[in-house]
Design a protein around this nucleic acid. Sequence first.
DNA 1: TTATTATTATTGCAATATCAATAATTGATA
DNA 2: TATCAATTATTGATATTGCAATAATAATAA
Lengths: 140, 140
Amino acid sequence: MIENVILFQIDLTSKLAKSYSQQEFDRIGLDITVEQWILLKIVEESEGLSQRELASKSNRDPASITRTLDLLEKKNMIQRELIPGNRRQYRIILAEEGKKFIKIHMPLIEKHRKNSIKGLTDKEIQLLHDMLKKIQNNMK
Amino acid sequence: MIENVILFQIDLTSKLAKSYSQQEFDRIGLDITVEQWILLKIVEESEGLSQRELASKSNRDPASITRTLDLLEKKNMIQRELIPGNRRQYRIILAEEGKKFIKIHMPLIEKHRKNSIKGLTDKEIQLLHDMLKKIQNNMK
DNA sequence: TTATTATTATTGCAATATCAATAATTGATA
DNA sequence: TATCAATTATTGATATTGCAATAATAATAA
C-alpha cells in the first residue's frame, strides 16, 4: 500500500504543513502565502543573494522566483538592489515592510514550528534531519 | 536558519522527490505526472472510493481531484462509475489502460522507491515513518 | 410532505510550477 | 580585441493547486 511508502508520507506531511500554515496565516489576516513567507525568510537570513541562488536554496524554478519576488516587491517586502559593475544580477534584500512583517510575526511562526515537532526529542529531530538529508542525496 | 527547521527539510525532500520522479517518468516517455500516478495508484489499491475520499487520502483539494480524474479518464486510466440511487457521487475505479500502466511500470517505481531510501535500515525507516505520523498529527 | 441543512462534485480565479525562448550581460578563447 | 560561449533574469505558454462560490443532490427536521 502506498501509505507505507516513505516518500508518500513525506509528501503528505509537506502538504499538511503547507495548508496548516496557510490557514494560520489567513486566520490572523496575513496577506501572504507560505511560499512567499519562506522566500522572505531566506532573504532575511541571507541578504544579498541572487535570484538564482534563492531558487537553488528553496528548490524552486528561477522563473517562479522572479514572479514571487515581483509580488513581494509590490508589497514593499523585498528590494532588488543594483550591483555596481554587474548589470546581470541583483542583490535581493529586505525592505521596510519585510522587516516589520518578520519582526511582528516571527513569534507565531516559532510557536507553530515548535508545535509541529511536539512529542519528539531533540535527538529524534536530529536523526530525522539526517535521514531526510540522506534521502535527498539519494535523489540527486 | 530555516535550513534547520524540520518542516523546511520535509518540504525540500518532497520537492526533490517530485522533480526526480517526474524526470524519470519523462525520460522513459511516460505521459503522466507524479500526482496523476499517485492518484492512479490509490485508486488501484482502494477501488470504489468517492472523489472526496480520494482527496482526503491524498491530502489534496477535491477540486484538484476532479481535474486530475478528468485527465486520467481521458486517457482511459480510470472510470467514474455511477452508483444506483446516488447521483451525487461516483465510485472511482481503474479502467483498462490504468491496469496496464501499473502492471508495466510498477517495477521501475519500486526500484525508484528502494533507491530513495538507500543507506537507511528497516528500523530507521520505521522510525522515520512514526515520526512523520506524529508530526502530521500535531498539525491536525 | 415541505423546508432547511449538509454533502458532493464542479467551475472560476489567483498563485505557483515548469519548460522553452529571449535579451542582456559577462566570461573565456582565439 | 573580437568572437563565441555561458550565465542571469525575464517573459510567454500551459498545467496544476487551493480556496471560494455554485449547482445539484441527499439527508434531516418541521
